[in-house]
Amino acid sequence: MRFPGLAAPALAIDSLSIPADSRVALTGASGSGKSTLISILTGLERVGQGRILWGDVDICTLSEGGRDRWRGANIGLVLQNFHLFPGLSAFENVLLPARLSGAMARDIRARAQDLLLRVGLARPTQMIETMSRGEMQRVAIARALLRRPGVVIADEPTASLDSDAGDAVGDLLIELSRESGCTLVVATHDPALTRRLDRRIRLVAGRIVEDGVIGERAA
């Protein structure tokens, strides 16, 4: 993966396989290629060379609209700055992507309510701008899980939270991904959060320099 104007590739990965129902930490310094890798894994950007296989499908061969649809159905995203939309309630924020994609299944409102309760928010009608940052990230987690994605990808989910709220958000991500059996990929600088995941991939200058099971490394 290269960007115009840069001599060295932003990302050069020979092979990386993430099995379903695994929990992976993606670490590395800023600029090491974590965000680029996430963009590629989520189909937000295409690779210059190589393939990204989702089962048997190379998502790089999908059209832009096709990747939007695929991402909406299979990927739950949790971002550092939440990207919640002010002026809407927590409930409406959880539903918004499904609404915009025309994916309003019959039971989806009930699921949104359940998820908000599950992440510990008892007032779904609360306006988003009146919430604390920790609460906002919990709304974002509920939103990511709404359409039962196969993979939840979180980009620095705890970086803008204090440590208590960060811990709570980390707990929720891990618990909820276990409960629903979905794969969790977390790009993070947070060592506490990294330790609680099963596998750690460390990137330096766009290359994987470490990939191992966390338990093994500690032993």
Binding site: L44, G65, D68, R71, G72, L77, P97, R147
Partner: peptide, 13 residues
Amino acid sequence: RQIGALRAFGAPR
């Protein structure tokens, strides 16, 4: 960024 986020969460173009 807001528009990008809408797309990132799966909203069609």
